[in-house]
Write a protein that binds this DNA or RNA. Structure first.
Lengths: 283, 283
DNA sequence: ACTAAATGTAGTAAAATTACAACTTGTGCC
DNA sequence: GGCACAAGTTGTAATTTTACTACATTTAGT
């Protein structure tokens, strides 16, 4: 693991001279990595072999290897660990923590995505007569985002926030329709019911939700994201980001499947937006 | 900077032998940092001084220094490079690329966030009489998400998708109201107008947008996210994720500022949702 | 006062760097 | 178009620096 932390922890187990070395390194690690073993020995007021032994005690192959480890520790600490926000965090601290744990969650999500299901769902979406995106609460904004994306594809796409509208929409489903349901927990009753209604009307139901949840069991296909539950502040944060990224993946798969001509069409949609914008200087 | 990227970029400027060295290092950087100059020279089929010259060309003091830099690059969590989706990518490939470039963008965003402004905006939000979140198109779903978050805080919070509703809402603003406007480009005309209207009515306008854009100039405070423009598929993807994460940061700052009692209140809101859910087995 | 652990000294091996020589590549001139 | 020359590139060998090993000495604990 992180060698700097390791030094701090093992400090008690060090011998007298080794402690001197540890002190010098911890005081100025940046200098340490740019010093030779002789310089560091002089700075710590110990002999060169002592420094070498110090390095070995930390499970490194020797001094150069130790410097490598130290350099890595200094680079960025341990990258992207899920660190929880603490009550006394400064703005800088909680900002970094949130960004980092979001990245950590994305990494976990990336590893848990079943590519085969992604591929199958992209298949379905490209062939769908109508695509619906439904979610409730926090997941509603994810569905909303999906609407934005797929709307540009010039595909019949539907999104409702209202439960009743969602139900009615599903009642009118038929073969060839795809209903994408988004829920972090997969335990929201009304969404499970909607899955049932949609399936009864021959629609294919895709769930972006937790594996083996009640909702997952009602779906034709499940894209599960094993994002660590974020207990902080009692709000699902990272899960939403992972869902959104998955939507991006689906949208990208969609465009790739549709081929070149289709992407030209997309560009036209984008150009249409120009009129509503202030031009960039120099464009 | 990151030495790995540097190697990739300078590749054209390298001489024939230096290219060989670059290739070997890029192919397996992990091996490179644990090799001596002699080993690496042999692997690249060049002489030792060539390797040394290669290191110097990259502005390092020599081979050991180069290894240090390389080690840091590898530790830096820069496996997440912004890689663009290619037409012939397999589902596995584009899935990974999208997740990775999203993470890369978050990292860039994290570094570009101005913590002082975050702190100031959190201040404003905690003292606001009314908070509005407005965005259009893709940014609408971000505003939607913000609504979800702040709604739980039991604060008067407003969100509209409709431009006219947004305008009317801003007309009714008064001192102590905070209007948060979200736009990736910051060039959407109607949103710039809304910023003007809100300010005319004494509201504080916070922009989550690109620095120095027309929108940014109309805002009281700007939270700019320097996310690399993603030209892929002509859709802003990563920028949205960065905006959402920033909303998470603001929401977290909000709850931290409000203190303990407030968080207990949040827990109650969460418990209220229980009734609408299927219980987890064993709860 | 003896033993075992800790530290240092001096020598050795390895690694990196320098200086210089050989080769390659491109350019101007006849 | 070929030849000579210069600039740049690469390699060889010697030198210097750096890290490591073996052994001697010191220190601390029983």
């Amino acid at each position: 693991m992180n060698i700097l932390e390791k030094i701090t922890q093992n400090q008690a187990a060090f011998s007298k001279s080794e402690k001197k070395v540890a002190e010098v390194i911890l005081a100025n690690p940046q200098t340490a990595i740019h010093s030779s073993i002789a310089t560091l020995a002089k700075m710590s007021d110990v002999s060169e072999p002592t420094v070498n032994r110090f390095c070995r005690r930390l499970d490194t192959k020797g001094f150069p290897d130790f410097k490598l480890h130290l350099a890595q520790s200094l680079a960025n600490g341990t990258p992207y660990v899920n660190r929880h926000v603490d009550e006394n965090d400064s703005p800088g601290e909680y900002t970094n923590k949130i960004f980092e744990s979001t990245m950590a969650s994305l990494e976990v999500a990336r590893q848990s995505v079943d590519v085969n299901v992604v591929n199958r769902v992209v298949d379905l979406l490209t062939q769908a007569q109508k695509i619906s995106f439904f979610g409730l609460g926090a997941s509603a904004s994810v569905a909303h985002d999906a609407l934005n994306k797929f709307f540009r594809f010039n595909v019949p796409v539907v999104y409702f926030e209202d439960i009743l509208m969602q139900r009615m929409s599903c009642m009118n489903c038929s073969d060839g329709d795809v209903v994408v349901l988004i829920s972090h927990t997969g335990r929201t009753k009304s969404l499970v019911e909607i899955a049932q209604i949609a399936r009864m009307n021959d629609a294919t139901v895709v769930g972006i939700t937790s594996a083996e949840s009640p909702l997952a069991q009602e779906c034709s296909y499940v894209l599960s994201l094993e994002v660590p539950e974020d207990t902080d502040m009692y709000m699902p944060m990272a899960s939403r980001i992972a869902q959104l990224t998955l939507i991006d993946v689906l949208a990208t798969g969609f465009t790739l499947r549709r081929g070149n001509k289709f992407r030209e069409n997309l560009k036209r949609v984008k150009d249409t937006l120009r009129g509503s914008r202030y031009e960039k200087r120099g464009e």
